[in-house]
Design a protein around this nucleic acid. Structure first.
Length: 511
RNA sequence: GGGCCGUUAGCUCAGUCGGUAGAGCACCGGACUUUUAAUCCGGGUGUCACAGGUUCGAAUCCUGUACGGCUCACCA
């Protein structure tokens, strides 16, 4: 048998001693089941009007200042922080000494007492009664510099949340933003639905899926890379405005704007086209900026050649609109139109030192050139009318272009939307083209053929518009952060602490 | 996957030319009844990420590995 006290230095001996003392006196903090508490924010608000009122409150001890026979300490709950004053005169000599000897920064305590203002003007609680509600057995990260090590911040996010207040607030805002998004969508007449995460065909995007297996069906399944094709089946089924906000999974690399699992908002509206979705997107983002951040202007800092550059992203609507070919033309330095032949595009790409496989289609060539231009877009810009061969689910606009837009902000793709292709024959052919392309270019991902989806279209899907928004990216943007890791509570990270109990190790060795 | 950078006490960091590791906070002992990064006195608690190599001697130089960050590629 192992015990926690000896397990991997999990427990600090001095801290553990305090807990043992408590238990010996019959005051095991872990026996406490509940505690009637007033939120600190409420105490603060009421103290503006009336002092001397008695409260019970609780929170985590964040700082202790001992002064012999009296002590100050700060406790914090999810609503705020307040100073607690504890005097031997008031609580009794023995009780005071016991608390003073056993309280550590990080403990969770419950107190009862009256509000008053100290000589230095700090609102405090004159404690009459105090108890430990939980004991900390390891020291918290440093109070002044906080926790900076990115690895520990992600692996032990609870510590990050605990000691870095702005991190805590960023997450609070992220989830407020999601709530506001749901309420916005409801106001626009959309209802929230849920569609499969386990899918037999990972459709709706071109990305590598995670693979899993259902034992009883003896079936290989994929974690969804997008909910798109299921949501559009609902349009066939008679739903007119639906949205889903949920996790999607892509088996790809991790970066400041990519996580293997991320949150996507997808919305579909029957009888609308992509201009409607542009309007919705713009209004949604402006609404969120106003409600969550209270401003359209978001300051950012970046480094270029070792220089710190401060700049501002302005979310004030209306957003700029540019065509895909305009951006490609700007990047190329000469005009690219639908008539520009492949040979010419190859020349341009080579001049721009873009690597080619030689297998690219017209749209893929334009895409490579366009990508160079996209990076420089900082202010919100709708890029419209994408090449058809890279948009196999979008409705045709011209021979080579589709009614599709993406919203680029701060160099990031925030949203992707189109007038949905509802012609089953065209859809069938587009899927076939994707299959062909996949046969030629083995390195890229293409949309997978989904015959069942084509079958659904054969029952008539109304004309419709669809939208996808990267919620993590949006949350990072609105909070002025340059990595989605700052708004994903537990970003995907390789496990490092892989501890097993000795018994398990032996079992493993034997197996 | 490529390139660059990082990993030193619980946390934040310093560590000279290669000479057996140091500060602040935290922690331990003591003083202190209105402090708030409390203060004052005393105490260093370490697998210098890991494994090799060079060297009389390595936190420091070299190689490899692990993990992380940035970036490019990939990818919405």
């Amino acid at each position: 048998m192992q015990d926690l006290y000896k397990f991997e230095n999990y427990v600090h001996p001095e801290f553990y001693k305090k807990l043992l003392d408590l238990k010996e006196l019959g005051e095991n903090p872990y026996d406490i089941k509940s505690f009637e508490k007033t939120d600190i924010i409420q105490i603060r608000q009421e103290a503006e009007v009336e002092l001397g009122k008695s409260y019970k409150t609780a929170g985590r001890v964040k700082a202790i200042r001992r002064h012999g026979k009296a002590m100050f300490f700060d406790i914090e709950d999810s609503t705020g922080k307040i100073q607690i004053y504890l005097k031997a005169d008031v609580v009794g000599k023995d009780k005071y000494k016991f608390i003073a000897d056993h309280m550590k920064v990080g403990d969770i305590v419950g107190v009862e007492g009256e509000t008053f203002i100290t000589r230095t003007g700090e609102l405090s609680i004159q404690t009459k009664y105090i108890m430990f509600l939980s004991k900390v057995l390891r020291p918290l990260p440093e109070k002044w510099h906080g926790l900076k090590d990115a690895e520990i911040r992600y692996r032990q996010r609870y510590l990050d949340l605990l000691v870095n207040k702005e991190v805590f607030n960023n997450f609070k805002k992220r989830f407020e933003m999601q709530w506001e998004t749901r309420s916005f969508m409801a106001e626009w007449g959309f209802i929230e639905v849920e569609t499969p995460i386990l899918q037999p065909i990972a459709g709706g995007a071109a990305a590598k899926p995670f693979v899993t297996y259902h034992n009883f069906l003896e079936l290989e399944l994929f974690l969804r890379i997008a909910p798109e094709l299921y949501l559009k089946r609902l349009l066939v089924g008679g739903f007119e405005k639906v949205f889903e906000m949920g996790r999607v999974f892509r088996n790809e690399n991790i970066s400041n704007r990519h996580n293997p699992e991320f949150t996507m908002l997808e919305a579909y509206a029957a009888y609308k086209d992509y201009t409607y979705m542009m309007q919705l997107t713009e209004t949604l983002i402006a609404t969120l900026a106003e409600k969550i951040r209270g401003s359209f202007k978001i300051p950012f800092v970046k480094e270029e050649n070792g220089k710190r550059i401060e700049y501002e992203v302005d979310l004030t609507p209306p957003f700029q609109v540019k065509t895909y070919l305009e951006v490609a033309s700007e990047a190329a330095g000469e005009e690219i139109t639908e008539e520009t032949p492949n040979d010419k595009l190859i020349d341009i790409a080579k001049q721009m030192e873009i690597e080619l496989t030689g297998n690219e289609s017209w749209g893929e060539l334009v895409e490579l050139i366009y990508s160079e231009g996209e990076k420089g877009i900082t202010q919100p810009t709708f890029i419209i009318d994408y090449p058809i061969d890279i948009s196999p689910l979008a409705k045709r606009k011209t021979e080579k272009l589709t009614e599709r837009f993406e919203l680029i902000i701060n160099g990031w793709e925030l949203a992707n939307a189109f007038s949905e292709l509802n012609d089953p024959e065209d859809q069938f052919n587009r899927f076939m083209q994707q299959l062909e392309r996949a046969g030629v270019d083995k390195d890229r991902d293409f949309h997978r053929f989904d015959a069942d989806y084509v079958l659904a279209l054969c029952y008539a899907m109304p004309p419709a518009a669809g939208l996808g928004i990267g919620i993590d990216r949006l949350a990072a943007l609105i909070n002025g952060l340059s990595s989605i890791k700052e708004v994903i509570l537990f970003p995907t990270i390789k496990p490092q602490i892989n501890l097993k109990l000795e018994e398990d190790k032996e079992v493993d060795a034997g197996a």
